[in-house]
Amino acid sequence: MTSRVLASHALAALLLSVGCNTTNTYTSNGNGGYTSVVTNGWLAYKATVDNVREGKLDDGTMKVQIDVRSDQLNPQRFNYLFEWYDAQGMKIDSATATWQNRFIKPQETITLSAVAPTRTCSRWVLKLSDEKQPFTPNN
């Protein structure tokens, strides 16, 4: 019995260390709104999309601002990445695209902004993922 408990604890620790950090994805619908695929409830609890504003620069380049809210009572961190697509649904790679880490205070709403890498981009995808470790002031 003890051996089974030990083995199950070890398995749980393994799953906790390697699993569960799935990505939540928010995709523009082309009409100023968005659809979401939330597979990580814990992440959605500390970073969920509240509001989206789309606009165009003078040269026609698309710009987006996304309000992200935390429902947590502790400070948190999360990672985000913007991807861009043209009208045909082709992904447009950006030379500077990278996952970025953000700090969010308890119950705070922050704004993530992005400008499309080319004028041909017409849709955005925002990917959110959890940070590697739970937040402590020193990590």
Binding site: T2, S3, A7, A10, L14, N79, T98, W99, E131
Partner: peptide, 28 residues
Amino acid sequence: HRTSIIVPALLALIAGCQNAQYQDPQGT
């Protein structure tokens, strides 16, 4: 006996000696 092998093996997997791997240059 089985547990004494499985548990350390799992813990070693977690702590892991890590071989060189490619990483996504845009990743986390």
